[in-house]
Amino acid sequence: MPGSRITALGHFQPTRVLTNDDLAAMVDTSDEWIRRRTGIATRHIAGDAESVTDLAAEAAAKALATAGLAPSDIGLVTVATCTAIDRLPSTAAQVAGRLGIPNAVTYDLNNGCAGFCTALACADHTVRAGAARHALVIGAEKMSHITDWSDRSTCVLLGDGAGAAVISATEGDEEGAIGPVVWGSDPTRSHAVRLVDEWHPKFAQEGQAVFRWVTGELPHVAREACAKAGIAPGDLDGVVTHQANLRIIEALVRQIGLSESAVIARDVVNSGNTSAASVPMALAKLVERREIAPGGRVLLFGFGSGLSWAGQVVTCP
């Protein structure tokens, strides 16, 4: 069976930037309060006319162009999202239509903030099984659509954006560059991150419970993903976790056992929490800025609603 590798990345964010001072004019908060509790300074917010499909298609088009592939080369398109309004056709089908991808399998996947890493694993398995030679994996969210702008504990967190990766089969004796996934869920705690109000769904979470779960129970899962990939945590070139908030990220990575030179993604500072879009968007930016060189080994690790998690070590293009 062939292996698979990430051959290209792309990202996209709306042009509107919402600052902490902007939020302070909307709810009882301040720049100092937000930075101290979350580390977030700004977030990008989509316009009313911008859809999840719009965000996803922009990021996917960049990844496809960087990969140098024709649309007809893509055999699978999957979009990880929890905020797409359209049920039929899927966001993935709409993206394929916009990019002129003619015959790919298309589907959306909802695993909340762990969505991209989950979708990446599914695409990896598809390519390894020979069912597609090239796959397009996208994480895209319009979190502003489900934000309760009167709730200062959550509205300061959320932003919009998309990230995409092209996955391709390895050639000849080339080793696979996407490591085995470690994934799972604890549905007994699914109430901790949820949507409330059936008619006008809004994001809600039990922040302290999520913080304790991530920092207390997930470090060993991250280390297990490294072990399955045959790499020690100290040999990683970087880590891209779900960009939940800076306090969670830093508390988690301190326990993994990284070297001092490892690059830690902190895109949450400028982008906020973008759920399934956060991992691919942060990874694409690190690669674009050459903060992680081609061939660098990076742990991707998503976690969130469900409560679910998914992670794998990948080699950067």
Rank of each mutant, 00 (worst) to 15 (best):
H242M: 12
R152N: 09
V166E: 07
I40C: 05
N273E: 03
F303W: 02
N110I: 10
N103S: 15
D237Q: 14
G47C: 08
A282K: 03
A177S: 13
G184F: 06
V287A: 09
G295C: 14
S190F: 12
M143T: 09
V313H: 00
H242A: 15
D173N: 14
V182T: 11
R212S: 08
Q255M: 04
D48H: 12
V268F: 02
H145I: 12
E291W: 15
G304P: 07
A61E: 04
A132Y: 04
S4A: 13
A132R: 02
V95W: 01
A135F: 02
A262K: 15
G238P: 11
G311M: 05
W199H: 11
R98H: 07
H11Q: 07
W33L: 02
S261F: 07
T241K: 14
G112A: 14
W199Q: 11
T7E: 13
I74C: 14
A277R: 04
Q243M: 03
D21W: 05
G172H: 14
L258M: 06
V17G: 04
A177D: 08
H200F: 09
L300V: 10
V166I: 15
D148Q: 09
H11F: 06
G100Q: 13
I248D: 03
T42K: 02
I74S: 13
R289V: 14
L299I: 06
M1W: 11
I146V: 11
S168M: 10
D73F: 08
A277Q: 03
G39F: 00
S190V: 07
R194N: 09
T215I: 09
A24G: 06
T241W: 13
A209H: 10
S305R: 12
D48F: 12
S278E: 03
R297S: 12
R98S: 10
A57I: 02
R43K: 05
P102V: 06
S168E: 14
L55N: 01
G75T: 08
P102S: 07
